[in-house]
Design a protein around this nucleic acid. Structure first.
Lengths: 138, 138
DNA sequence: TTCCTATATCACCATATAGTGATATGATAC
DNA sequence: GTATCATATCACTATATGGTGATATAGGAA
């Protein structure tokens, strides 16, 4: 149906989600790895992945507390198969995607546990900055 | 560049513009023909066509006062070639697209002049309704 | 010239969306 | 049990977008 076609197309047509799809074209990843590579907050990443999953472009598998995402292998959806096939035409010479791919290599080497630590640190830093600002207001 | 990829993808990912692209996959059309088939106002149609043109998915040619639109034949843009190639995977069984295609047949038979008349009538009707409402307010 | 028509653009409003911090959920470790 | 961590979801704000009427532009006809 047209509605599904548009939903999948919309899911692709955002810079952040295009970056996510580019990364997933290389390997499966969990949320905290995306946080490090994309340098974005956890809720942002989770939201974007939810949109991609809802459109059927991406699948999720829980392993312990981690959620691993990968490109959908669903053969029943014609649009999504075609949209995913389009990923190789993402501009390989784009500096953002090149940087993402380099980060992906590093992150992959260091493993998931590393990302958890980095993501947690980031979260705590954000909290403490916020707490500091509040103190200054008094 | 990623920005262009996203722009083209965004241009496709709207129900109205997907309908426009579906029509253009069959034949070139001018604005007033879109107005009749899509049953939308002139400014709306013009805006959507502008977005598609700006993304490079569509070309425009002026003939007299008419602007004719067609799918871009530009071979230099990799994304757009791929996006246009995706059009055949628009859901052919979708009732909206089927209705659009039927309307396209009728409109094509009757020619551009017919559409001009219909579009103009519509415009006048809208104006007179609006004028009537204003009179009632007094 | 003046009038009419086809299209583009503008201004506006209503809705949708991205990003974010806070909170909720759910699993693991202690 | 509690504590901790990974993720999902909620609430909110700022911005983007779709649809529309009004206006501007520009070509053709009278």
């Amino acid at each position: 149906m047209l509605r599904e076609f548009v939903r999948s197309s919309k899911a692709m047509s955002d810079e952040t989600r295009a970056r996510i799809l580019n990364l997933l074209a290389h390997s499966e990843l969990c949320v905290c790895q995306f946080m490090v590579i994309l340098d974005m907050g956890q809720s942002t990443v989770s939201k974007h992945l939810g949109i991609l999953k809802n459109a059927g472009l991406v699948e999720m598998e829980k392993r312990g507390t981690w959620s691993f995402y990968r490109l959908s292998k669903d053969k029943t959806n014609a649009h999504n198969r075609d949209f995913i096939r389009l990923l190789p035409s993402l501009p390989k010479d784009d500096p953002i995607l090149q940087k993402d791919n380099r980060s992906l290599n590093e992150v992959s080497k260091k493993g998931v546990a590393f990302c958890s630590v980095v993501a947690l640190k980031k979260k705590r830093r954000a909290r403490s900055i916020h707490a500091g600002e509040e103190r200054c207001d008094r």
